[in-house]
Design a protein around this nucleic acid. Structure first.
Lengths: 336, 336
DNA sequence: TAACGAAATGACAACGTTGTCATTTCGCAA
DNA sequence: TTGCGAAATGACAACGTTGTCATTTCGTTA
């Protein structure tokens, strides 16, 4: 009947219970080697008995840092899981926790708003996950004392950015077609407002133009298989269409199904490449060649960039994480 | 050349700049109506000029709360995105931020460890996302002053839990088969260690036994299409197999492809139901009937449960979020 | 103009830690 | 036993807020 009265057990309570000074308790926690073993044991016993847990607020107030990195989710898509996974693992490894806020569905949120909200929370630095354009992107200035990293394919004038190298990935896929003897490449895009889709389209276009090929009109999709199917029906009627690059695997699959339904074979009649390399999860023996981005690596890099910049928040860097072409059997070699 | 000297601008600095007292600045922030408009303007101007941002640590220390809910991710799977989305949206709505930590890949983490780590962080309550069994599940006791909600299908002796009603969902699907005249239902499971898979299997078994049907040996899968395909090849040879329940859509698709490759038609020869209703994203015109769980709703409920329990951390409740059978065309009615 | 109650503002302590610096205790040599 | 330097411990202030209570200022009425 001795416990359970005060709400929170403080270091002072522990100190009294252990018959030592407040500061000694502090030392047991932060620099145990500087405390005699017998004293240390007394303190540990008291902490155990009282159920002491250090107060985060007081500690942070004194130290002037939190040990937390803020993460702002402007958009939560499929690939985001792996990215968060990477961020969280890297944070864990470096002894940081994450503080997360999210744009509410349907509402708008500018970078400035996000920064203002975050800077009221326990964070030493922050990461913005930005997959669509936002109004104040170019004018935004991060708080001078809070390292800010933006995950986005766009370059920012003052903040560090980290991104998949979507453009190179698309170029890589496109050149893969061309190197296999294809004379042109059609493109099925994702949602218009998606920066990923825009970058992939840009890379596709650049690769063709680099070889003096006029890019055909891209087909508009929405990431889902049905839109890919619709695009596939259109493409099946184009005699010059031997190669299709779809902005993700789901649409690529839609394209392939449409081609098949039109009596065309992949890869014999038409070759196809997708993005994300996730079709194998859903389709047995999937043959789709695909450009895979390392989202987990992306998250790790973003977090490391923040941590590296904690001391120099105004530093600025640009990190691109390259993609990988996962070769399967959906591209025919026309050179033979 | 007047700014930029002290690291952090405090309310005291603002007070001096505005020619008012510290407390008045505090009031401008927390109870603006109690401050004369002219004073308020002066203070706001000073805050603006100095770039003042309230110190989270000091505020929390004084208030004794953080306005943050801890989230522990023991496991980060596909469905987790929507759940996190729900948690984050609900948190936002109620004025909370999230503090997140994650089990490191490959390492083990007990509930007790998670609780210990979390209670050193800025959190008023916490949510554990637990999709696999953990060693100390039954013996775990949550900190008495920190409301703890576990997202898991298992019942916990002392903590509140929230879960999809996987078992009912599976039963629902199974009964749907039986009500359509099927005499038996085969089952393809997910990974052994997954609690979702275990619950789905349990529901399937229960539904059959309730009608006096001896459940056939379940086929072991691993969530991916290839394992579903393998199962499908086996099932295609069983003459009594008219209905297959697969523990997710990817495996269901694998099953369907195998059946087709064996010359069987879905649903004419064999009917199939999956879980998660996500095949339509990848397969154009998907006909797969599927049990869909509302992960977002699950997250919302979990967060609301934590917030509701902040004042009474030792309260305990059990919430089940029901699934929905999304009817498409993969089940044949044998009663005709 | 004086007096009054209400509204606005201010002084000071307190929240639970850690840093600084002073003091005590220890182990060992003289 | 005494003295000494090093190790261990302690007293006290400080971090930047908010709560309590006292004081000042305001607008109104007599």
């Amino acid at each position: 009947m001795a416990t359970m009265d005060k709400k929170n057990v403080s270091m002072n309570d522990v100190a009294i219970a252990a018959g030592v000074s407040l500061k000694t308790v502090s030392r047991v926690i932060n620099e145990p080697d500087s405390v005699r073993e017998s004293t240390r044991d007394k303190v540990h016993a008291a902490m155990e008995a009282l159920g002491f847990r250090a107060n985060f607020a007081a500690r942070s107030l004194k130290l002037g840092r939190y040990g937390c990195i803020g993460v702002v989710l402007f958009h939560l898509s499929g690939g985001a899981v792996d990215m968060i996974d990477g961020i969280a693992d890297a944070a864990e490894e470096r002894g940081f926790a994450l503080t997360m806020i999210k744009k509410r569905a349907g509402e708008k949120m500018t970078l400035a708003e996000a920064a203002r909200r975050m800077s009221q929370l326990p964070v030493d630095g922050m990461i913005f996950n930005l997959r669509q354009m936002v109004d104040d992107f170019d004018t935004f200035e991060a708080p001078k004392d809070l390292k800010t990293v933006i995950i986005t394919p766009m370059e920012h004038p003052t903040c560090s950015t980290v991104s998949d190298d979507q453009e190179s990935g698309a170029r890589m896929a496109c050149e893969y077609f061309l190197d296999h003897g294809h004379k042109n490449v059609y493109f099925v895009s994702g949602k218009k407002e998606s920066l990923s889709s825009q970058c992939r389209m840009k890379g596709w276009r650049a690769a063709l133009e680099a070889r003096g090929i006029e890019p055909p009109e891209p087909l508009q999709g929405d990431w889902n298989a049905d839109s890919g199917y619709a695009a596939g029906l259109v493409l099946a009627d184009k005699p010059d269409c031997t190669a299709v690059l779809a902005a993700n695997d789901c649409m690529a699959n839609g394209v392939m199904m449409a081609l098949r339904d039109k009596g065309l074979n992949v890869p014999d009649d038409v070759s196809v490449i997708g993005f994300d390399d996730e079709l194998y999860k859903t389709i047995p023996n999937s043959i789709l060649t695909s450009v895979k981005f390392r989202h987990r690596e992306l998250g790790i890099r973003a977090l490391n960039e923040v941590v590296a910049g904690l001391e120099a928040p105004s530093s600025r860097s640009r990190t691109l994480v390259s993609g990988v072409l996962v070769e399967r059997a959906s591209v025919r070699d026309l050179r033979a």
